[in-house]
Design a protein around this nucleic acid. Structure first.
Length: 416
RNA sequence: GGAGAGAUGGCUGAGUGGUCGAAAGCGGCGGCCUUGAAAGCCGUUGAACUCGCAAGGGUUCCCAGGGUUCGAAUCCCUGUCUCUCCGCCA
């Protein structure tokens, strides 16, 4: 959630920054107004409560002394106040609910070094790494290769579930597992501690990291339960610290986890319908870090480096992209995407996304640390290292041979 | 799924209508003592919001949400979770 006090204090600035992310100024104006109204009502409300409390105390004392009549007089007085309190309470609750609902739907403020832009076409390439492979034969797409080699069974996925689910067979299944192991080990070498988490989480958890309330339609929900399938391990990993005050954050918290991820992919019908680029279920190894505010920039670079290096070890060509304001995710203040070369599409495709959310998630989830006597909000960061399914795609396509087979990258051989 | 018990501060745990944000112990922090440490002694030690330039106030929070009452950690209702036993199960 954005800082409402900051919004109140520095409205013009915040509004202009959020405008680049598609937030209407009138929505922010309304939030500011609600916030100010709320505080006003609250002040009056609390004054009445204070009055009630002190009078009630008096009644107690009078009763003890046996002065029943005097007590009765005060009682009628308190009764009048009670009516007022009830009234104000109702008003306050209504306004708080409205404010909360509105404020939770406002995305994070982009960092000032994030390029301003409308959509993905305005993202800025930072660098390209690795040689794009040249083939002296007609390259096949991963879905062609997958069917020919009996690695990917699209029909079986549809039979078991529905479209955008796929069954991996033989070498592909083993390669998937090898990649998970490889990434976890790789991340561990960067100091990220491996964690294993639930794949189902409750609505409070989803709210803290920003999936709820706004993106309900993208999530799979369990019927009759307050449980959702996670869209990324970022959700459980970050929420490990929800409502916590971390005593010592001199060393950042660094975690990594493998989980499957579940996404409805609402609004992406017709996109990437072939192959396994866009699935309802996919594997991902995630990085999450929690830092002091002053340490988050450094951690961000470290996470980009970690994910990039994994691609280099696999010998895959990729590029780094700084997302523009219009393409930035809801919770992110800044994001760098890694895109891997996909020969059959003759272009780079997203394989990792590293984001700094600053204190946006921390405020929602009340994740704080002790800074001397004070409790301060932490910064939270997350990034994929890496998306496993898309790495499988990249390996299949980049490592294909003329006779329609696929070589296994050297670093993976010990896992297979 | 069935039966029972429970949920209080960082932890253990007392508190059954008013003076309770809450005893006591442990832990943490500061000090005394000590060459240093331990022990011992003394002091201190929750969070959120809000008013105020500040000093300093106020409100809320004893699992959550309702209710009774002038007044609720304490009484009533609903829900959630935890533990124990049984059933089922990898």
């Amino acid at each position: 959630m954005i800082d409402l006090k900051l919004l109140e204090r520095d409205f013009e600035n915040i509004a202009s920054k959020l405008k680049t992310k598609g937030v209407k100024e009138e929505d922010l104006k309304e939030i500011k107004k609600l916030f100010e109204e709320k505080k006003e009502i609250q002040t009056v409300f609390e004054k009445y409560q204070a009055k009630r409390n002190s009078l009630s105390k008096e009644i107690g004392l009078l009763m003890r002394e046996g002065k029943k009549d005097e007590a009765e007089t005060i009682k009628t007085k308190v009764n009048d106040i009670k009516v007022k309190i009830e009234e104000l309470n109702e008003k306050l609750k209504k306004i708080e609910e409205k404010l909360n609902q509105k404020a939770l739907s406002i995305p994070n403020i982009p960092d000032s070094d994030v390029p301003v832009g409308k959509d993905e076409d305005d993202n800025v390439e930072i660098k390209r790494v690795g040689e794009i492979p040249v083939f002296d034969f007609e390259v096949k797409s991963h879905d062609e290769l997958g069917e020919e080699l009996n690695w990917l069974d699209f029909k079986a996925g549809v039979k078991l579930a529905k479209s955008r689910f796929t069954v991996l067979k033989s070498e592909a299944a083993r390669l998937e597992r090898a990649l998970i192991n490889f990434f976890l080990e790789h991340n561990r070498s960067y100091g990220f501690e491996e964690v294993y988490v639930p794949f189902l989480v409750n609505s409070q958890t989803m709210t803290a990291t920003g999936q709820l309330p706004k993106f309900k339609d993208d999530l799979f929900k369990i019927e009759d339960e307050d449980l959702y399938l996670i869209p990324t391990a970022e959700v459980p990993l970050t929420n490990l610290f929800r409502d916590e005050i971390i005593a010592d954050l001199n060393e950042p918290v660094k975690l990594t986890a493998y989980t499957p991820c579940f996404r409805k992919e609402a609004g992406s019908y017709g996109k990437d319908t072939k192959g396994i680029i866009r699935q309802h279920q996919f594997d991902k190894v995630e990085l999450v870090a929690i830092t002091k505010p002053e340490d988050s920039d450094k951690m961000f670079d470290e996470m980009v480096e970690c994910a990039s290096n994994a691609l280099e070890k696999l010998g895959l060509a990729y590029r780094q992209l700084m997302l523009c304001t219009g393409d930035l995710g809801f919770s992110a203040a800044k994001t760098i995407d890694l895109e891997v070369w996909i020969p059959s599409q003759n272009r780079y495709r997203e394989i990792s996304s590293v984001s700094n959310t600053r204190d946006f998630q921390a405020r929602r989830g009340k994740i704080r640390y002790k800074d001397g006597k004070k409790n301060r909000l932490v910064h939270t960061l997350n990034g994929s290292s890496l998306a496993v399914g898309r790495t499988l795609v990249a390996i299949m396509e980049n490592y294909q041979t003329k006779d329609g087979k696929i070589k296994i990258p050297e670093v993976l051989q010990k896992y297979i």
